[in-house]
Design a protein around this nucleic acid. Sequence first.
RNA 1: GGUCCCAUCGUCUAGUGGUUAGGACACUGGGUUCUCAUCCCAGCAACAGGGGUUCGACUCCCCUUGGGAUCACCA
Length: 463
Amino acid sequence: MTDKPVRTRFAPSPTGYLHVGGIRTALFAWLVAKQAGGQFILRIEDTDRSRHVEESEQHIIDSLNWLGLKPHKGPVRQSERLEIYKEWAQKLVDSGRAYADVSSPEDLNRLRDSAKGAHKPFLFREHRPSETPPWEPGMPLRFKSEPKNYSWQDEVMGELHAGPESVDDFILIKSDSFPTYNFAHIIDDHLMGITHVIRSQEFLPSVPKFLNLYEALEIERPKLATLPYVLGPDGNKKLSKRDGAKDILDYKKEGYLPEALISFLATLGWNDGTEQEIYAIDELIKKFSLARVQRSGARFDDKRLEWVDGHFIREMPLDELYKLAEPFWPDQAKESDERFRKDVLGLVQERLKFLAELRDLTWFFFRDPTDEEILGQLAKAESVHLSTVIESLQQSDFSYDDIKDRLNDLLQSLNTKPAVLFSEIRGATTGAKISPELFSSLSVLGKDKVLARLQRASKLLGT
RNA sequence: GGUCCCAUCGUCUAGUGGUUAGGACACUGGGUUCUCAUCCCAGCAACAGGGGUUCGACUCCCCUUGGGAUCACCA
């Protein structure tokens, strides 16, 4: 092997959005390129016109950009390279390694059915016609394979083997003149100088066919790396859109941090052998290796993602988090100033798992609770201290320390417990089932609001 | 059915012949002046089965079982 500059690619077909499985493939390819100082290329495999979704390409690009997996250049589109595939196809025709396929869909179905009935694999090469017409536009072109045993090295799976049954004649160019994946990706990888083909497991059974084609084309084979599936949360099936796998951009909408997703995805099927659980992107670039990628599928676990995301949120400087939190505030928060919102954010930072939780955690800072909300948090019979609390807090400067001292004093003088007194105050001032720590909450909420809410609660209870 | 891949706690995993099989998520219990969360402590919990090889197997080999993929003019 030569010392060609490392180049990897991510080659999705534009049929919809990207889910975590696809993104993980992109991430690994990106990491391999990055750590070698190489290039990461985006190639749009749009050779199936019937499944093509117009907005898909932009959506894919947006997804990669959000996660910081920036391709080296703009995307390469296979649909714009038809002439190239045609030329290479012609080479195969000229060397006798490809032939026009005149069989009808009915022929094929019949052959397939009979193979199935005989419990044998369907191999087109067993029905290869002895004579075929010259290849002309509008005719599908089929590869003429030379079946044999193969052994090859996979960067992830190790030494792999397959028998001649795995090699067959397959379609290179379809009747609409578009190439198949099986053909186009081989040509493109070669022409684009791709050094590592990193792709998911579904292509593994086809590798012997590809190997046969590399030989027929007399081109050097890139390194092959097969990634195991990301499995759905339940069952052993690979994660799929059909089973509700989320669009990666939905995680953006819910306020997950890109660096958290990256760390989570990287450790889904890879580890560096240490007990480290969280990785910064720079560390991943340094430490990642295909050889340490797991060979078995990894199940996607929401809970772990939440934990990782919460971890990143807690570690983040408040000012930075504040910028990201912008779209996630409760509606009424617009009317509050930045200082206030930052204080509030500081209070809930440690309990956010993702930013969309901000709303439910902070609404009572921006809007008075309703009667029902207050009463829902207060048991009348036990709520008897409110007027005393009001008296004391009226004297307070509402600093954290002063509030703390006063409420602690009340604990003494009223001869009660935090579980009683603090719950009462919390319920009356927030009307919420959960809230941040009491003294800070009161301090941030401010004297006017706190006193007004306490008085209102007191009135509601008739005390 | 043929071909191919895979197999350690519920989940993600460490482990490369000798370990009380480690960590993390989740879960359970406890602590941190109320709730929720953080943090800390503790607990629960795994080598699919059977044969070999070996003084010794989670580690190596074989078989079985289980799971998955693939056999398209889809990628």
